[in-house]
């Protein structure tokens, strides 16, 4: 708004009209775009329920895929395979992520090394998942000589670590200094204070962060393409290729068979329900944690 030259009353009224018009246009645009954005979400969820629910039955959860051309079959092995890979990823990713978060909050605060690691975590968070897949392939699959559940778990754990690190750090930062001082004043060593006081006080937030990281990698496909690879049969061996729900959805979605498309929709519905449940659990958990904190 540069200095306005003198205007006649008429042009002043025009200016006023234009200003209020612009104002209304912007309001309308922002409402419109919000609706436009919510539309795909509702469409996607709607389609998932519409297409997926009709294909969900007991077989889906108990049978392994049927050979091409045969009807029926399910994704039991993919669901179990996903669980195996995710448990593996959590076993590696959660301790390392929490440990790094503890370091950033309790040891590296205000230090150059801490800042550099914090930045590394943010950058690692942005690395495309397919690149993580290549790295896990080169590191694990090539060494072992074949695709494996282990490689898939490692790839997913790499994706979990930076998220968990940052959440842990942020949640620990909310623990008041006075609470830590209480522990130090009792002669409790630092390691015990961190474990039994700081982490325990921050635990609702940290658990939330871990579940969000879990939900995020649960749907990842790209890093599993050439690590876990997929498997049409049951497998429990961590050194062998293993099926995973997102991989199976992909395989079925790009296949030419209607029967498989049907299963892909059902698989996607199950996947999204799993993610929705964990996100909702997080909401409930986080809400309760806040109440319980007292202050």
């Amino acid at each position: 708004m540069s200095a306005l030259p003198k205007r006649s009353p008429g042009s002043e009224r025009a200016l006023k009209l234009r200003r209020s018009f612009t104002n209304h246009v912007v309001t309308a645009l922002s409402i419109g775009s919000t609706i436009l954005v919510l539309a795909p979400l509702l469409l996607i969820l709607g389609y998932l329920f519409y297409k997926g629910a009709s294909s969900l039955n007991l077989d889906f959860f108990t049978k392994i895929p049927a050979p091409v051309g045969e009807t029926g079959g399910g994704m039991a092995n993919s669901i179990v395979g996903s669980a195996v890979v995710l448990v593996l990823a959590s076993l590696i990713g959660i301790p390392v992520g929490i440990g790094a978060g503890v370091y950033l909050s309790e040891y590296g605060r205000g230090q150059t090394l801490g800042n550099v690691i914090r930045f590394t975590a943010d950058v690692l968070n942005g690395v495309p998942s397919i690149v993580v897949g290549i790295a896990a392939y080169a590191l694990v699959v090539v060494k072992q000589g074949h695709f494996s559940a282990l490689a898939g778990g490692i790839a997913l754990s790499i994706m979990m670590v930076p998220t968990i690190t940052r959440t842990t750090e942020e949640m620990l930062a909310t623990v008041p200094l006075a609470v830590r001082e209480a522990a130090y004043g009792l002669g409790i060593p630092k390691w015990r204070t961190v474990l039994s006081v700081s982490l325990r006080t921050a635990s609702p937030g940290i658990i939330t962060g871990c579940m969000l990281a879990f939900a995020r990698v649960a749907g990842e496909t790209a890093p599993l393409l050439f690590t876990a690879f997929g498997n049409q049969f049951w497998s429990w061996d961590l050194r062998q290729p293993i099926a995973a729900l997102p991989l199976q959805i992909y395989t079925y979605a790009v296949s030419p068979y209607d029967e498989w498309h049907r299963l892909a929709w059902a698989g996607a519905l199950v996947l999204i329900l799993l993610i929705m449940i964990s996100v909702t659990l997080v909401r409930i958990f986080a809400g309760r944690g806040m109440l319980k904190g007292g202050n």
Binding site: V96, G99, A100, V102, Y107, I117, A138, I158, P189
Partner: peptide, 30 residues
């Protein structure tokens, strides 16, 4: 508890450095 404190601190540092290590390893294998 100095020994336990030192060990614990070192362990947390290792976790933090592993982020570096991961990024470095990715660059290296690529």
């Amino acid at each position: 508890g100095k020994l336990a404190d030192g060990t614990f601190g070192a362990l947390m540092l290792v976790c933090a450095l592993s982020l570096f290590f991961i990024v470095g390893l990715i660059v290296y294998v690529l």
